[in-house]
């Protein structure tokens, strides 16, 4: 009782010096945090790195059944001109059979389902279902999957054995997500802008 009373008494009478101590310490902490931020943020992508974020590709020379890999933002992007059979195979799959049921398409809302229509270039104004354009890094640990390989005849990642189908959707293996579709825009009928 007396001890608690003494503490209350003490707390009731902060001195001018107490205030100065706390205020000075508080300012030092805030100042330190403010100084720290530039030294953390400098490691994020620089302005010129961000400015280099879009490229334009002429897709007319890509024949049916052919695939090219272009470099965008330092990594591979697959552009595949799919055959009728590949498209049919991709469309025949029930959504329930997919480990990842989201389209992972930057041009669509986050919750868009992983139908082939939502993944192919048909999801973009001016694009056709024949073209599939997606990032070429496995969603497991970033290796580049091999085309026309694996149990689903889409892509196969040799690093840890992930199988993707002809729509670039993960079917089997450790990868958690479908290969994602980057931001796309058709400038003309045959020229696509990535980013």
């Amino acid at each position: 009782m007396t001890k608690a009373a003494a503490q209350a008494d003490h707390a009731a009478e902060p001195t001018r010096r107490d205030f100065i101590h706390i205020a000075t310490g508080g300012m030092a902490v805030i100042g330190g945090a403010l100084v720290l931020w530039p030294f953390i943020d400098q490691m994020n992508p620089a302005a010129d790195t961000l400015a280099l974020a879009s490229i334009r590709i002429d897709i007319s020379p890509i024949a049916e059944g052919q695939e090219i890999t272009v470099m965008w933002r330092g990594g591979p992007v697959f552009i595949r001109h799919r055959s009728e059979r590949e498209i049919e195979a991709a469309r025949a799959e029930a959504l329930e059979a997919l480990p990842d049921r989201l389209a992972r398409n930057d041009n669509l809302p986050d919750n868009a389902p992983a139908t082939d229509e939502n993944r192919s270039a048909a999801s973009i104004e001016g694009g056709s279902a024949a073209f599939l354009i997606m990032r070429g890094n496995c969603t497991h640990l970033g290796c580049v999957p091999l085309k026309e390989a694996g149990d689903y005849h889409g892509w196969y990642c040799p690093c840890h054995g992930s199988h993707y189908d002809t729509s670039g959707r993960i079917r089997r293996g450790p990868a958690p997500e479908n290969l994602s579709v980057p931001p796309l825009r058709f400038v003309t009928e045959t020229e696509v802008q990535i980013g």
Partner: peptide, 8 residues
């Protein structure tokens, strides 16, 4: 992305 300082 912070570690990379870019997109790859």
């Amino acid at each position: 992305e912070w570690l990379w300082g870019g997109f790859s």
